[in-house]
């Protein structure tokens, strides 16, 4: 029973991983570009939630929406101000641009909020739910379920709507998309907005359940990257399966080996995967 409890807890967190990994995979799929600041977007989403709660009050729906909107705007602005200019440049410039961005965001947060761990004040989401003997803290449950729904929503947006088709068209062939009247710049900015927005939203959801500090972004960034690698680059459903798997593996290794080993096991599995299947678990060669 305890084991089941551990696995369910891991899966709930894994759903949130899936949500922010989807953003990373979207950008990779469209632009062959890894955003090294992606984890920082998650971290900013957490602080955005904190600021909204302390200044405006309001429930999870409000601060999650606010975090998503703020990060959407930030993501689009970063695309126009920085990414657009390095996208055709040398690879070193591409890597440096988001890497430098990650440092700026992380240490600005460090400067403003200090290195201390903080958590959200009690929100409407508290207490524990007992389902068939499983004890589930409501914040974790809500975050996991919401993340699952939002990841599914993002997938539907990409595969079932006109905007999604336009995004995929730009990913498929930029020039051809321009010929049929799609503006690739707008679509790529939209992708950055969606990626950052979903990361911010994921951050706000996690903020309800876990304490954090400015340095969590580094870990989340790596987790997102590993999730995307496992799931195959460019695939939202892949990110979902992989995110759930990473969450469960983390929870089990923390349970069996001790909390410090939760990241170690995931990173080690990732390195092993590089040896055995460099194209990812679900990816094609």
């Amino acid at each position: 029973m305890t084991l089941l409890q551990v696995v369910v807890g891991g899966l709930l967190l894994g759903a949130v991983y899936a949500l922010f990994a989807s953003g990373l995979t979207l950008i990779w799929g469209m632009m062959n570009f890894i955003n090294f600041a992606h984890g920082e977007f998650v971290m900013l989403g957490m602080y955005a939630a904190l600021l909204v709660v302390t200044w405006l009050g309001g429930g999870p729906a409000l601060f999650a929406l606010a975090a998503a909107l703020v990060l959407f705007a930030l993501g689009a602005a970063i695309y126009f101000g920085l990414i657009r200019h390095v996208l055709r440049g040398p690879m070193l410039a591409q890597i440096l641009s988001t890497f430098g961005l990650a440092l700026v965001l992380r240490y600005t947060a460090f400067w403003i909020f200090s290195a201390n761990f903080v958590s959200l004040p009690q929100t409407a989401l508290s207490g524990t739910l007992s389902i068939g003997g499983l004890l589930l803290p409501v914040p974790q449950l809500a975050a996991g379920v919401a993340a699952l729904a939002l990841t599914a929503g993002l997938h539907l947006l990409l595969t079932r709507t006109a905007v999604g088709s336009q995004l995929l068209a730009v990913a498929e062939d930029r020039e051809a998309a321009m010929l049929v009247g799609i503006r690739p710049d707008r679509m790529q900015a939209l992708a950055w907005g969606l990626a950052a927005g979903s990361a911010g939203l994921a951050g706000a959801l996690m903020a309800t359940a876990y304490p954090w500090s400015p340095s969590v972004g580094a870990t989340f960034g790596l987790t997102a990257f590993i999730t995307v690698t496992l799931g195959g680059f460019g695939s939202v459903p892949g990110a979902l399966y992989a995110g759930l798997m990473v969450g469960a593996i983390q929870a089990l290794s923390a349970y069996w080996l001790g909390p410090i080993y939760k990241d170690v096991v995931v990173y080690a599995l990732f390195v092993a995967l590089l040896w055995l299947r460099p194209q990812g678990l679900m990816g094609r060669a």
């Binding site: 390095v86 410039a93 440096l96 700026v104």
Partner: peptide, 9 residues
Amino acid sequence: GGIIVLVAR
């Protein structure tokens, strides 16, 4: 970080 971003950009 700012220096790296500027160099890259």
